[in-house]
Design a protein around this nucleic acid. Structure first.
Lengths: 104, 104
DNA sequence: ATGGAATACATCATATCACGAGGTATATAT
DNA sequence: ATATATACCTCGTGATATGATGTATTCCAT
């Protein structure tokens, strides 16, 4: 997918990946794989940004003797997803505009 | 609409605005207005970029004693629109992923 | 006739952001 | 032993939307 198109989708996708249950970096990438690919460097940049925007919170927990950082979505994060749904309607209009055939 | 989301749509929208007939800066902005807003500085940046990518060609013509730059879509430009249609299918999948309700 | 809006083009500086390259460390399978 | 998977992180770079700003002409209302 075009890099510029991804830009608008990645943040929301990451939020979507943790909306049903807390998750951690490596798992988020795997869960998103069928829909959109992203590298670790990209993901951690996004997680930091979403944390700064208070759309998720972080907690560190031990798992099999190794530390993991678990991310949990906040109300602001859920609002971002709702806003995206509204933006989708606008995008659908744009799609129609772009694919409009010649009206002879 | 979210700035990042616009990024991926603007180029294709500008191409869509000239796909049926040649157009010029001011008119492109007006035609796109119902679907997506963009400033003149943004538009001219995009037109330059699309010209560099050979997705459109430019010609200068006089209109009412004033010079206008008319933009015409190329085959590469039409291909970009076709590619977008394919990307739309991916985006629809992503939309489903994001809006997926809890599966109890 | 004068002033302001609309038309029409353009440049520059800034802030945001995806991503490759690189780094650290442990667990598990071959 | 060694390779692969898991798990985290930082930095530099290139791409790009946008506001601010500038130039110039035409049209319309007062």
């Amino acid at each position: 997918m075009d890099v510029q198109l991804k830009r608008g989708l990645l943040d929301v996708c990451v939020l979507a990946a943790i909306q049903h249950e807390d998750s951690y970096g490596y798992k988020i990438i795997k869960d998103m794989k069928p829909y959109i690919l992203l590298s670790e460097s990209t993901l951690y940049t996004i997680l930091k940004r979403l944390e700064g925007a208070k759309m998720l919170t972080v907690r560190t927990a031990e798992h099999d003797g190794r530390l993991r950082k678990y991310y949990r979505i906040t109300d602001a994060g859920r609002k971002r997803i709702r806003d995206f749904k509204e933006e989708w309607a606008e995008m659908t209009k744009i799609y129609c505009f772009v694919t409009e055939e010649d009206k002879k």
